[in-house]
Structures are given as C-alpha cells and as structure tokens.
C-alpha cells in the first residue's frame, strides 16, 4: 500500500485516489436517478421505518426523521449551486425561504416546481405547500386500515430540515392527503387523487423576528 506511507493518519483513499473533496459539486443535468430505482429504494425505506412501529403517526415521524438530514444538506448544496458562488446569498425572510423550497428544492428533487403555495387564513404562522402528484407516492397504494398514512412525510422531513437549517424553526412539517379530507367533490380532489398538502408551521419566535425585521424599515 503506497498510500499508507505518506498518510500516517490512517486515512484510506478510494481506489481511484479521489476523495469527496476532489469531486465536483455541480453535477450535470443528466445525472438523474431512474424512477424505478428510487421507487425500489423508497419501498425499502418505508419497510425499514415500519419495523416495530406503534402507529401511523409513529411511522410518519420516522419517515420524517429520514428526510430531515437531507434537508440540512440540500439547503447548502442548492444555495452554493444556485448562483455565482462569489455572490452567495441565503434567505433571511420566510417568503424567500418558501420560494426557495417550492422552486429550487422541488426542481432539484422532482424536476418541476411545486404546484401551489398558500398562507393559512386562520393561522399566520402556517403555510401550505401543494403538490398535485407527489413523486414519492406514485407507486404506493395504501391498505384500507392505513388510509391515514401519507408517505410524503419523508418529503415533509426534507422541508423541515431546510427550514430548521436556515434558522426558521418549525413546530413540525406534516404531509396530508387533500382528497380524503375534503372529499372527492372539492377542487383538486377529483382531478388529482394523490394531491398532497405540506403544512409548515413556524414557531412563534420566527414570526416575531420577521415582524421586527419588517418594521425596521431600513
């Protein structure tokens, strides 16, 4: 092992002598994963999360936890890719952050922007992000006794990771199926049976900070 002599630290290099630091952060566009490979992996992730799980909420929590570290990483990766690195910027208000999630993050993960972004009328700290046809749910059919489950909880975990990482603490991000709540007759439910809403609820201190920053007036 020639590498062992000049590396007394015990660091082992891959056979091509390229560490992660030698690899480019900007992948080309055609470096997409096949949908079949993703679906297969995701099924395994769900069945892993399902082991010794107590209920639907517990299962969704585990899926959420699987997504969370991804969000922390994607935040920095996408910010560093988004523009000229010499003028790196980061979101400091709620709306630009949500735009970042709905546009940049969604494009990176699913190849298209999210379908709608709304603020709750009753609760100012709550935002709704809609996806008419979540990619993660495409090959998932729920048994009757688990109709409450929405496996997009994994994506909700990614969103939570992005928000938390950027300094916008949330009470939690959850995924819900729209069709089952509003019945098939309401808007969206009929045309998009898999329509999913991600509820993002920010903590009170985030809203307070937002208000102070907005009031400052510059």
């Amino acid at each position: 092992m020639s590498g062992a002599q000049n590396q007394p630290t015990g660091l082992r290099y891959p056979s091509n002598k390229k560490t992660i630091y030698d690899r480019n952060l900007n992948r080309t566009k055609n470096a997409e994963l096949s949908r079949a490979a993703f679906a297969y992996l995701f099924v395994e992730m769900i069945s892993y999360a399902q082991q010794r799980v107590r209920g639907i909420a517990d299962l969704e929590k585990r899926l959420n936890n699987q997504g969370y570290p991804l969000g922390l990483r994607l935040l920095d990766l996408l910010l560093s890719r988004s523009s000229n690195p010499l003028s790196s910027i980061r979101p400091t208000r709620i709306l630009p952050l949500l735009q970042f999630i709905a546009q940049t993050l969604w494009r990176h993960l699913f190849g298209r922007p999210a379908d709608a972004l709304e603020r709750s009328e009753s609760d100012a700290s709550q935002f709704m992000l809609y996806d008419n046809e979540p990619l993660v749910n495409q090959y998932i059919s729920l048994p009757r006794e688990m109709s409450q489950l929405n496996c997009a909880a994994f994506v909700a975990g990614i969103i939570e990771g992005v928000c938390d990482g950027a300094g916008f603490a949330t009470e939690g991000v959850s995924a819900h199926s729209v069709a089952e709540q509003e019945g098939g007759a309401s808007a969206g439910g009929g045309m998009w049976p898999g329509k999913t809403v991600f509820l993002i609820k920010f903590k009170q201190e985030v809203l307070e900070r937002e208000e102070i920053l907005g009031r400052g007036g510059g």
Binding site: L79, S87, S88, I89, R90, P91, T92, R93, L95, P96, R209, L213, G214, R215, G216, G217, G218
Partner: peptide, 12 residues
C-alpha cells in the same frame, strides 16, 4: 439577518 431593506436575502 441583514438590513430590513433587503429583499429577503442576505449575503453569506
């Protein structure tokens, strides 16, 4: 968090 006049983003 940058000056409040910014458009919601601040430099790193």
């Amino acid at each position: 968090w940058g000056p409040s006049s910014t458009s919601g983003s601040a430099p790193m």
